[in-house]
Structure formats: structure tokens, C-alpha cells
Design a protein around this nucleic acid. Sequence first.
DNA 1: TTCTCTGAAATAGCAAGGAT
DNA 2: ATCCTTGCTATTTCAGAGAA
Length: 336
Amino acid sequence: MRIRPKDIRAMIGIAMVLAGALSLAFTSLTMEESLLDVCSADSTARTPNALLTYLPLNYIAIALGVASYSRDYLDRLIEKRFKARDLKRLFLGAVVAGGSVHFNGKKYCVRYYGKDAVMHSVFRNLAYMIYYVRPSTVEVKSRRSYVTQLYSKEAVRELLELSPEFGSRSGGAPSISFILEGKAEAQVEAARIIMSTSGWLTCTFSRRLNGMAAYPRLGLGSVTPLSLNAQYKDLMDGIGVKMNVAQDRRYTNSGYLHTSELCSIDAFREKGGFVEGTLVKRGAFSGIEKNELMNAICSVSRRVEGSKDELLSLLREYSSSAEENLQMYMNRIMLG
DNA sequence: TTCTCTGAAATAGCAAGGAT
DNA sequence: ATCCTTGCTATTTCAGAGAA
């Protein structure tokens, strides 16, 4: 059997795709290091953990996906010439919205809580880019949640300088003044991080003459100290997302932000929306990427269907599932 | 069409402390 | 100094109904 030039070309093509895919996979797996080496002088070549060889392919795919979303996000910040000062604004936003600061006696610890792996990755990378400390993320057993802990006196000291109080649960009122003083782009990204940490997105369904219609609802926080809530409002207003201050009478001295207006949600979408890759974790839309859901909700909004179930399946149809997204994302990487 | 109120239930956010 | 685990409950979040 003769091998024609066409076949050789095809084989070379396949080999190149495979090689490319492999090398991309390995770069991505060590992405946190490679990205951060941009910032640190002592960049050293790293080899992928041998254990990876034994991991099932889908776990590798998921790890890759999470790492890639985070890398893409932070890469873009560096492209936008974000300096340490700007990164600190994002870091502060993450801690205020979903973290805590401890300094009891001898321990200095900054923590970030949440169920979203992508956001933890973002937090870790920010921490290393700013403080050169790699925090570790611990999966909290039996509750599908994570805690990322940064032990750094410097970080604690600086955070307390920027916001004298944290811990809104224990009467503290964190401040994001430092974010509000930042350049426009930093404010947008801080808002995205805050929304991705404490924001929520859902639908309400209301009866219409000939069926049901869905209305969107975008919110931030739930029991936020009033002063912080006002600052959140300023921040969101500043980037063109008008939100209303609401107060839950059950919890005095606190409030949250929300809107049902499509134009506000569109404005948020235009600014990039939630951090790419963050997923809805609870409720009817659990598992769907937040931005996909936001797009779906905007498309389906006001459409009248026979029943709530029909609207729900329509919404799911419009927002491809996270797995499909990951698959598409992987394909895009692999096939260019 | 948008906003407000509130129930309900799960859990997410701490905080503390032991281990390394 | 850092890492990891665990317990507790006030908070968080979804969701539905109705008001504006």
C-alpha cells in the first residue's frame, strides 16, 4: 500500500494537533505558576505532576477549565495594565464580599469563602500577585464549598488599613472606598468580582392572560450593612448598572441591592457580567454558567409560554449547560 | 412591568483550635 | 507560621404572592 502525500499531510496535521493539545494542556495545568511568573523574577520551568497521569480525563478537563477561566481573566487584567494598586482593589472587593480577616493575637489570616472554584482560583492568583504568598484552598467536606486561606501579616495589615472593619456579621461595616477611588476599569473589575462573589441572579414567574412570563432579577448581597450597601450602589451606578436599595425588615440596619430592569442587566452584561466560568450553585438554574443564564433570561424575558415548566426548559435551552460550555471551551483551545 | 414582602430551609460564613 | 478540620447558627438564598 502506497502512502500518498495527501495522507502524509493529514498525518502531520493530526500529529500537530495532538502535540499542540498536549503542550497546551500542560501549560494550562501549570497555569497558576506560569501566569504568576510574569510577576516574579525567578521564573523556573515546572514539570506537571506525575500523578496527573493517573487522573481520569474528565477531572483533568475540569481542572483545566477552572484554571483556564481564571488565567484568562487575570491575563486580561495584566494586558489592561493593572498594577498592584489596582489588583489590591479587586482583592479588597473579594474579601469584603466573601471573606474575612483575622488577627487574633498571633495569627494573621485572610480567608475567602464560597462554592465557586473559579473564584477561589482568582483569589489565589490575586493573593500571589500582590503578596507573593500562595494561599491554599481547602474543600470543606460534605458541603460542596471551599475555604481559601492566606496567612500573611502584610495582607492583614494592608486590608485593615484600607477598610478598618470587616466581619459584617459581627457588627462591622467594611468599606470599599479604596475601590471607589480607583480608575474606571478597576471599578468595573472589582464590581464583577463582588457580583460574582455575593451577587445573585434569578427569575420570577408571573401569570399572564394566556400563560406565564418570566421576569429577571439581579441582586447583590442580602444582609449588607447599610453603609456598605450605599457604597455598593455607588459602585454599580458608576459602571452604569442602576440598582435599587432594598431593606429586609427582618434584619434592621442592613439591606441589599436589586433590579428587575432589563437595561440594568444589559449594562452589567456589557461590562462583562460575572467572572467567566462562575456557576449558579443552587436552585432551578444550578449548574448553569451565570453569564449564560443572564443571556438566557434576557432573551426569554417577557415571552409568554404555557407554563412555568415550559419557561424553565426554554431558559435551559438558551443557556447551554456548564459542561457543554467547558467542552466548547476545550475544543476552542485544542482546535484553535 | 417592576418592586416589595416574607416563608422556609439549607447552608455558608465564620471562629476556634488542634496538628504539623 | 502555616495547614486543616469541625461545630454552630444567623444568614443566605430561592421562591411565590401580591402590591404598586
